[in-house]
Structures are given as C-alpha cells and as structure tokens.
Design a protein around this nucleic acid. Structure first.
Lengths: 140, 140
DNA sequence: AAAAATTATGTTATAATATAACATTATATT
DNA sequence: AATATAATGTTATATTATAACATAATTTTT
C-alpha cells in the first residue's frame, strides 16, 4: 500500500477538509484559527499535517504566497510537479492541468544534463474577473 | 531614463555587492549581519533595498528558499520571468538561460485565454557535485 | 535657483511564518 | 504481545517580513 492510499489521521483530515472548503489558498495561521474549535491548538500540529498532505499530494504549497491549496488534479501522482496561475490582484490561484506543458517541463534538462525530479511553476497575471472590475471602475 | 539605468543608492549598492559576491543565494538576515559594519542596522533597510533590486532585475527571490540571488543574465530585461534549478542537497541555485524554454513559457495561455505578465519556475534535483559526493560515500 | 515631489534613509516596535525539542499516545508491523 | 512507526500535544523560540513614523537626499518642475 503506498502513501497515497493510506488513510489520513484525525488532524490531517480536519486540515485537509478545511483547505478543500476554500476556493482560495489559505495560510497556516488562518488554518490554525479556523480549526481550533476542533481541538488543534498549536502551530506544529498544523505544519505537521501540512507537510504530510503535501508529501502525499493532497495539497500544494503556493511558494510566492506562503499559502496552501488543495490539489485539483484527480488521482494526482506527481505532487512535486506543479503549475499554478496566480492573480496579482485578488490572489486567487488556479492549478493548471496542461499535459503538453507538463511533458515539456518533465523532459527539461539543464546544460550539465542534470535531470530534475520536480518543479514548481507559478504564472502571474490578472484574472478575467479582476480585469472586468478594473474596467467597471474607470471614471470618465 | 528607465529604472534599470538609474544609479543605485548607497544601501542598494552595498547589498547588491554582497549578494553578487556569493555563489549561493543569501537570506535577508544573513545579508543584514554581513553589512552591519557598513552602517546598515535594521531589517527594513535590507528589505527595501531587496525590493528595489528585484524591481530593477538586479537580483531575484528564490521563492522556495526565501533567499536572494544575483541575476546572472546580462542586460536582463525580464525580471519577472525567471527559471532556476535548485539542488535539494546543497541548495545551490543556478539561473537557467534557455531561450527556447523562455519562449514557450512566455507564450503560455490558460484555458480562459488569460495572458500572463510573469512567471517563476523552479526545478528541483541533485546537482552533479552532490551526486558525486553521494557515490564517494557509499560504504561497501 | 527655489519649490515641490519623489525616493531613500534611519529607527523602534511588532506581525507573520515556521521549527526545535520533548513527553505521550495511537496505529501498524513483525 | 512486542516492537516499530507515525501522529499527537505542548511550550518555547527561531526566522522572515512589515507597519509606522521622522528625517534626509535626490530629482523634477516651475
């Protein structure tokens, strides 16, 4: 039985559940304050669960935001090969599922011929919704 | 005159100079302790200079490490389009200069047709030197 | 050159993010 | 049942980053 199919512990379930309920990525201390009523009291309990959930691919860390988001790719088996688009304005994050791009990145070798065992790619821009809001707010 | 050609301020010079002297990325508080003899006393002075140096493309932030590294691409005019390879073992970072990959990433559009104005890509693996060390250390 | 605007500096305090270390309990494996 | 592994609970502390304010230097405009 591999790590993915092992059942989650109590704290891991509570924290995964909270992350999955949120459309936007959540911060560790926001998780903490939201699960305190479930008996999780201190940062290490949160960070441990986060580490484990990342390891098994249930969530990802959004590096540029220090935040955590549920994996949107069903049966994801590549937790360390991630691509996100991030809106500079509302900070919403979408996981990008583009097999062609994945293939291209997976095949990448550097000058030395070093092959990599993972990557994280974050695209930055302004999402449609925020562009529309900007247009609405132009004053004539 | 654009931002790039503006001359740097005193603190910006001191901090850029220190970052450029280091092969590996450096952390903000390591910068601070190393430039205190030059009269830089407090974190905000470091972070302000870092922000500015990033903005003008002289340095980049390595997101997965909370560290800062000098830009290795001469006359870089795309400070928000960065690709790095990072050794999981020694944490050395190399900036990747691969026009074909850049072109591919620059051209990327998501499902909604959103075009992005920047990206950061970090590849993870084990560098040649660390692989060699591992081989040397195998005990028979 | 004087006035105004912008950019950078210096400083103190504090916020936000993350881990070390240790004792204990629960769960899986042999 | 014994052992090993993984998870928990807890306190304290380390690390990373920013807010807020006063001042000084530099650039731009008049």
């Amino acid at each position: 039985m591999d790590k993915k199919s092992k059942s989650l512990s109590k704290n891991q379930k509570i924290i995964l559940d909270f992350i999955q309920k949120n459309k936007k990525p959540v911060k560790a201390y926001s998780i903490l304050s939201n699960v305190q009523k479930k008996g999780i009291n201190a940062p290490p309990q949160v960070y441990r669960a986060l580490d484990r959930l990342i390891e098994i691919g249930k969530i990802h860390r959004v590096e540029s935001q220090n935040s955590f988001v549920a994996c949107k790719i069903s049966n994801c088996d590549t937790p360390h090969e991630t691509v996100f688009s991030i809106c500079n304005s509302c900070e919403i994050v979408s996981e990008i599922n583009d097999p062609k791009l994945f293939k291209h990145l997976k095949a990448f070798k550097d000058n030395d011929g070093t092959k990599f065992d993972g990557y994280n790619l974050e695209f930055f821009g302004t999402c449609k919704s925020c562009i529309n809001k900007q247009i609405e707010n132009i004053q004539y």
